[in-house]
């Protein structure tokens, strides 16, 4: 491994993932080169079916590429054996999904601590960590609630707390605000912003322009490939009044 400061947290080269063959061959990811720097928030947007979820799954080792390379922290992961891959996922990657994927029969705090337990932490350390994280996402008072007793936005915040439990190198989020209304989305955006400020690395695939607008870098995806990249920094301050009908 070379100079860690310059090593991207995530890197892919010539990444491809296809399903089926012959007539029904689907090129879900068709040659993606991506570098995500430490501390960066990257949003990937694109029409339904363009390969966003597939990309995210391959990035996080939930799925293997058909071709190409995936590197995490300077370590090539696409050729790891099943065991090593599962371990890498548990320890280095945090996933957040649109449907939250919480365990219905576990309370919020139990859902969060589960990944710490699976990673081999003592029950006591795991509970401490989970409690801390729930506090951080503003849900300390809901620790004992089952998911069914939480709102969509609260469930998503529990899922984010869970994703952070093992201090992952990167958080991968698939449509994290997909089921949320405008106020709950704002909470999730605030949370991502605080993760960003704390130096976390985030890759978010989404249809939501609000996420795209607040990311450091916005990548547009079509038919399995990246077609455009934008950095939105340096806004238009001062024009907001005009948008609300105030001159100035």
């Amino acid at each position: 491994m070379s100079d860690t400061a310059d090593t991207p947290v995530l890197r892919t080269r010539g990444l491809r993932k296809q399903y089926g063959k012959g007539e029904v061959l689907v090129r879900a990811v068709a040659g993606v080169d991506l570098d995500v720097a430490s501390g960066e928030t990257v949003a990937v947007m694109g029409p339904s079916g363009c390969g966003k979820s597939t990309l995210l799954h391959v990035l996080g080792g939930l799925d293997r590429p058909s071709e190409g390379e995936v590197w995490l922290d300077g370590r090539r992961i696409d050729r790891l054996g099943e065991k090593a891959l599962a371990r890498m996922r548990r320890e280095a990657v945090g996933f957040v999904f649109q449907g939250f994927h919480l365990m219905d029969e576990l309370t919020a705090v139990e859902n969060v601590e589960l990944s710490a337990l699976l990673a081999g932490n003592s029950p006591r350390a795991a509970r401490r960590r989970a409690t801390e994280l729930l506090e951080r996402v503003g849900l300390a008072d809901r620790a004992g609630f089952l998911p069914a007793a939480l709102s969509g936005g609260q469930r998503q915040r529990v899922a984010i707390a869970r994703a952070l439990c093992n201090e992952p190198r990167v958080v991968l989020a698939d449509e994290p605000t997909g089921n949320l209304d405008s106020a709950a989305t704002l909470d999730v955006l605030r949370l991502f912003e605080s993760l960003h400020e704390a130096g976390h690395t985030l890759v978010i695939v989404t249809h939501d322009d609000r996420i795209a607008a607040t990311a450091d870098r916005l990548i547009s995806m079509r038919d399995g490939a990246f077609v455009d990249e934008t950095r939105l920094a340096g806004g238009t301050s001062g024009k907001l009044g005009a948008l609300a009908g105030l001159e100035g």
Binding site: L189, D209, A213, T214, T230, L232, G235, T236, L240, L243
Partner: peptide, 15 residues
């Protein structure tokens, strides 16, 4: 791009 920039400003202000 221009609209996203404005959305960024508005969203940051809202947050």
């Amino acid at each position: 791009r221009e609209l996203l920039r404005r959305l960024r400003d508005a969203q940051r202000a809202a947050m």
